[in-house]
């Protein structure tokens, strides 16, 4: 369970995250989407207490009732693996190349749960089976370079699940994988979250993968959540101009023919230090109002479970 209130992460003057709030109950699956530099990975790292040393975090963050707003490195260490776990984008180098993958998965089991070698082995085998690794007995003895990308990502998922965490953060877990392998990994993550009643935070720029995997999606831009809601609703009926642009920029096949040119959002994501004070999207927005660059739009409820941070989209109080 995650309670985050107004989390900001700054590097000196530059704000990588600005007043992000999240509340996730067990079993909930949240997708974080946005371009590179939108802050989605930074938010994932903040939830692991693994922000870069130079980062300054403010706001309130609690995981399973433990207040971690000012947690020391040691306190965070006790949370990792046992309460909150993370898998990363690049499965190629995410495993120690000199170790048999079985030993890598057994390490937290022995260290954190105090299991004996044979118990840890048995547990690792179960985890390999649960994450759909073929011939798990044999795979335990293999080295990372002997496995395919998909198998490695499964091993990393098994490793993340070793100490039965309540929260799994998956940062672009499928980006480096082939499309059909990626599909199986997202399905696996969905099943695991459901079976285990685990919070899943799925970070991706792949909207199709997000749509398959999560229930709720939060669209991030410039370190802020600009739109949030049930994934089907947000993707079919986007309200924020940025979300609209993002969805519009996807390659789609209409009438059996691929569109020749993809529409783009004009301009680039500005550097952190150059982000506008008001709406982060001002300057690139096609429907900009005079106040947009100066006044920050709050993330307000717009009916149902949806929320949007845009001066154009009026608040709906139910």
């Amino acid at each position: 369970m995650i309670e985050a209130e107004n989390i900001s992460v700054a590097f000196g003057e530059a704000e990588a995250l600005r007043r992000v709030s999240l509340s996730l109950r067990p079993g909930e699956r949240l997708g974080l989407v946005g371009e590179s530099g939108s802050g989605k990975s930074m938010l994932g790292l903040a939830l692991m207490g693994m922000l870069p040393e130079a980062a300054q975090m403010t706001g309130r963050l609690a995981i399973d009732g433990h207040d971690l707003s000012r947690a020391t490195d040691n306190e965070w260490r006790d949370m990792r693996a046992r309460k909150v776990a993370m898998i990363f984008q690049e499965p190629m180098m995410a495993l120690n190349p000199l170790r048999r993958v079985g030993d890598t998965v057994m390490e937290p089991l022995r260290l954190h749960l105090g299991l004996s070698k044979s118990d840890a082995r048995r547990r690792a085998l179960e985890l390999f089976e649960e994450t759909g690794i073929q011939e798990p007995e044999e795979k335990l003895r293999q080295y990372p370079h002997e496995l395919s990308g998909g198998q490695r990502q499964r091993v990393l998922i098994a490793l993340a699940l070793a100490c039965d965490p309540g929260i799994l953060i998956a940062d672009e877990p499928t980006t480096a994988l082939d499309a059909h392998v990626a599909l199986r990994i997202t399905d696996l993550l969905t099943r695991l979250a459901r079976d285990r009643g685990m919070v899943l935070v799925f970070i991706s720029h792949d909207l199709a993968a997000v749509a398959r995997t999560v229930e709720t999606v939060a669209v991030m831009y410039g370190g802020e959540i600009v739109e949030k809601g049930p994934v089907a609703q947000v993707l079919s009926d986007p309200r924020h101009p940025y979300t609209k642009g993002l969805l519009h920029a996807r390659p789609t096949i209409t009438g059996g023919e691929l569109r020749k040119r993809l529409p783009m959002i004009p301009g680039n994501v500005p550097a952190l230090a150059d982000l506008p004070h008001g709406c982060r999207f001002s300057g690139r927005c096609s429907v900009e109002l005079p106040q947009c660059a100066e006044v920050r739009p709050a993330l307000l409820g717009i009916g149902g479970l949806r929320a949007c941070a845009c001066h154009h989209v009026p608040e709906v109080v139910e």
């Binding site: 692991m48 693994m50 260490r77 006790d78 949370m79 990792r80 693996a81 046992r82 776990a85 993370m86 990363f88 690049e90 190629m92 180098m93 995410a94 495993l95 120690n96 190349p97 390490e107 937290p108 260290l111 954190h112 990393l156 490793l159 993340a160 070793a162 100490c163």
Partner: peptide, 16 residues
């Protein structure tokens, strides 16, 4: 390298 981050994410101490 990435696997060092993985080790951190699994709650290993700096020394380990």
């Amino acid at each position: 390298l990435d696997f060092v981050r993985t080790a951190r994410a699994t709650g290993m101490t700096r020394g380990r």
